[in-house]
Design a binder for these strands. Structure first.
Lengths: 259, 259
DNA sequence: AACCGGCGGTTCAATTAATGAACCAACGCG
DNA sequence: CGCGTTGGTTCATTAATTGAACCGCCGGTT
């Protein structure tokens, strides 16, 4: 891994749960020598990508990323369109909808919407950082990613989050095969207990996934008819989101209903 | 300059006017060898910071920056608060207000608001990339930046944008001295003809400017009373914006009215 | 008060990565 | 068809990065 990629990989350590991280923790979490981490962070800081705060001089993402995002959004309004599509998807299905983008070896939630259709709903507070092998979004992305990326992801330890989590990479591959047939990955309780999710990849201009669009609902509300409805809505949603942001659906992306 | 900073400096080439740039142009604009630029861009691309599009494989900012900005905004809502403050400032002054952040050797507009108070207004379409020496925002930032940064900035060629633009670095320094006395940089027609702007720096947690807050109005509406009103509003605005985003005003930042 | 363990930060010999001139195939233009 | 430009590649040379060991400071414990 080149020096630039190494430095940028440090940015993947920041999350909603951990927006500020000290130097020693950055070194520990990334597996780098503290001197190396220090130097890389200093260079990121010199460009405004990270900054240091507080008496303990912890690092956090800096203002420079806002301007990059604003420039990006000006030409490819992914966040703006995603908010609209996610809102509409939540309204149509009556459940929680969200969109996430690839962040190193995980997915990071970019935007989500709750529905007022029911008194209970799947919440996103503990789901801003999603594991590939254990979420509908993750499986949807892997199903349409390059084999190299899939191999790299499944070569890492696959932790269990619930009693249902599949931690055997062969079983995960079988789930990917199923997702490839229908274009939607279904996931029952792998990441959060009693949550059934449907997710489809969102594609970039190179025809590769850049993230996923998903609907998450409690088991109790999931009938076959509901599942079919959500499946179709997610497919339509990702087609719209991909199209409106200049992405390209792969030629072999399925159009049909679930079998 | 380290490799990481070098790679990130390439991101400064992208602008509202030029959201996509080919490899040879990146090399030409940055002064780097094409092979070097290619390698650095490939590493940025591997982390989703840039992506390639179109038949000519031009580069543009990638989706990875959106998620970084979302994480940053979740803990330090600079963009969200800036939008509010800029909106309020425009309403209060009846003129165009905007906020920009430092981007290498220039300032990049982050958000702006127009007022409906008059039939004519200063527009922002041609002012998303601001020169330090020739804009109120730029002078405001320089006035409260470290001497090293000021020296580095003024050592570069200072192009003229209008007949009023000051291109002599000693004269620019005199303008910085004036801004230090009042906390606000005034700028008459240096960047756009017949536009009078007032700007104040917005400070980060380290007490250094991370950008500027400004009001731009046509000459024709600028009376002494109006100027004093705008001056006070900009000072109040930057105090609020700095405070609400966890920034720290330097101890010597002026509080008084213009002399 | 003394000691300990951890923090952020620094140094420099050894190691590794980056560099860029020269090259390639492809493409559009006259 | 020839030319000039593009995106992309190669590898001997050059430069940057690395990380073990170190530093001062700080908070907690005895």
């Amino acid at each position: 891994m080149g020096t630039v990629a190494k430095a940028l990989s440090l940015l993947n350590l920041f999350s909603m749960e951990q927006p500020e991280i000290g130097l020693s923790d950055v070194a520990r979490l990334s597996g780098m020598n503290k001197a190396t981490a220090y130097r890389l962070l200093s260079e990121l800081q010199s460009q405004g990508i990270v900054e240091q705060v507080g008496p303990d001089r912890a690092y956090r993402l800096g203002p420079g990323v806002l301007r990059l995002a604003a420039l990006r959004e000006a030409s490819v309004p992914l966040l703006t369109v995603a908010r609209e599509v996610v809102r509409a998807l939540s309204d149509e299905t009556g459940e929680t909808a969200h969109m996430s983008v690839i962040r190193g070896t995980r997915l990071s939630a970019l935007t989500y919407a709750y529905s007022q259709a029911h008194a209970t709903r799947v919440t996103m507070e503990n789901a801003t950082d999603l594991a590939f092998h254990a979420t509908g979004s993750g499986l949807a992305v892997l199903a349409f990613s390059d084999p190299g990326f899939v191999n790299e992801t499944l070569a890492q330890p696959l932790p269990a989050y619930t009693e249902e989590t599949v931690t055997d990479s062969a079983a995960v591959r079988a789930a990917l095969d199923a997702a490839r047939l229908t274009g939607v990955a279904e996931c029952r309780g792998l990441f959060e207990a009693e949550v059934h999710s449907h997710a489809a990849p969102v594609f970039g201009p190179d025809g590769k996934p850049l993230g996923a669009l998903a609907v998450a609902a409690p088991y109790a509300r999931m009938t076959n008819a509901t599942a079919a409805h959500i499946h179709a809505a997610v497919i339509a949603g990702t087609r719209e989101l991909t199209h409106r942001t200049g992405g390209a659906l792969p030629a072999d992306y399925p159009t049909g209903a679930p079998t």
